[in-house]
Structure formats: structure tokens, C-alpha cells
Computed example of a mutant assay.
Amino acid sequence: MLDVAKIRAITIDLDDTLWPIWPTIERAEKALHDWLVQHAPMAAALFSSPSALREIRDYMAASRPELKNDLSAVRRESIRLALYRAGENPLIADEAFTVFFNERQRVTLFDDARPALEFLALRYPIVSISNGNADLERIGLAPYFRAAISAREFGVGKPDPRIFHAAAGAAETMPEAVLHIGDDATLDALGALNAGMQAAWLNRSDALWPHELEPQVTLTNLAELVDLMR
């Protein structure tokens, strides 16, 4: 059971918790492809091939393991590799990535996201924890947050307890006084539990809980959490 009296801070995931990520990524990849068609058509053809794209990503994962927590760097260097393999100028990879990244920040919030953030931010410091590369300033949500902890900047990602502990530190409290909210059963909910936090699993898709250790609360939307914490 959720112990509301113990909560002194909130940590929250971003992608698929506050907005659906795949429509965003699909728009960003289309923007990137359209740009490449104009500026590097041979590389655009590579990115149109699922098998070629999969091979590039697998190659990057194997050859640049130090980038595993930096999705921006993985994306940018994958573009650079595609340009090189296509015989086109790899120096335009940064510009191409900027096209992708700008579109990636154009998210569409779930209807319950902003009202929940407004409610929670009036009562608790909120810190985001993300393995992704969303930019809260550019998205327009930064005013609700005390801090943003990303795997790219911190060096390790969820479910490692250290990133949860760093977020608790950013909220100036101990892990046991934090409620973490997120959609991923393993990365978010189990990760938070193993870090000593309470966990609210946001299960929008009616999935089955896959672990023996269970979260304090399971939600189908963030409005339910607001009701619990009034």
C-alpha cells in the first residue's frame, strides 16, 4: 500500500509516462529522412532499409559501448556512419542530428500529465529520471521540476540504484522518502523498489506485473495518483 505520509519528494520518468514516445520518434525519424533525401540521398536510402538500419545500430552498440547511456550520441554517430558508408559527407551528421533532435522535443502530453504535474509540484519537489534524451526546457515542463537526472549525464541508467539515489539527493531527501512514478515495470518500478523508494507503476496498457516484488500502487493514469494523494 502507498504510504503517502512518508513522501517528501517525487521522481518521475518521462517517455511513455508523461507522453507517448513512439509517435514522437516516428515524426523525428521522418523529419530526419526528409532532410537526408535533400542533403544526402544515398544515406537516406540506407536509413529506409530496416535491415541496414538494424546493422548500423548493432555495429554502434558493439563498437562504441561507452555510448550505451547516451541515446543522442548513438543516434548522431549512427547517422555519421551511414553517411560514411554511403560515400557522403560525414561532417553533416551534426546538422542532420539537430533536425532529428528538434523534432524529438515536440511531444504531445497525455491528457493527465500536466494536471498531475501541477498538483504534485505544489506539494513536493519533483525530479525527472530518464534513460532518454528529452529536454524539459525545450518541451516546456521545466518549471515543474527541481532537477532532471539523465543516464547520459549521470553515466548509468535505470534500473541502477545509483541514478535513483542521485535523484533523491537532487530533491534533498532520502530514497525512502521518495515516490517514483514510471511506466516500465523493470526500469522504473522495480528499479525504484530496489533503490529503497516507494513505486507507482503507471500501467496504461493493462500489462501483467512481471516480478515477485510488487510496487506500492499500480495506476492506469496519473489522475488516479492525484486522487490518492489529496
Rank of each mutant, 00 (worst) to 15 (best):
L190K: 11
A43G: 07
P50G: 05
S78N: 10
F154M: 02
T108S: 14
P20D: 10
I163A: 09
M1T: 09
I149A: 03
L83E: 02
A166T: 09
R64W: 13
A52N: 11
E153S: 13
G157I: 02
H39C: 04
D111W: 11
S48L: 10
P161T: 02
L81I: 09
F110N: 05
G182S: 02
I10S: 07
A189M: 11
L83V: 07
E103A: 10
I12P: 01
I56E: 01
A207T: 15
E103S: 06
D94E: 15
D15Q: 04
D160V: 04
A177E: 14
A166D: 06
P20F: 06
I25D: 02
H165I: 09
G196E: 00
L136R: 05
G155K: 01
I139S: 03
W209G: 09
D160N: 14
I126M: 12
G191D: 00
E77I: 04
V4S: 12
I12R: 06
A223Y: 14
A82N: 01
V74Q: 15
D206S: 15
W35M: 01
M1L: 09
E137T: 12
R75N: 02
L202I: 15
P41K: 04
G87M: 01
R54Q: 14
N203W: 00
Q198S: 00
Y124G: 08
R80W: 00
G182T: 03
L225C: 08
A61T: 13
H211M: 05
A151G: 04
R27P: 07
M60L: 15
D112T: 06
D183F: 07
R106V: 01
W19D: 03
L120I: 08
R138C: 06
M229T: 10
S205I: 11
L213M: 12
D58L: 14
P210G: 07
D58V: 08
T98W: 09
F101C: 02
A40T: 12
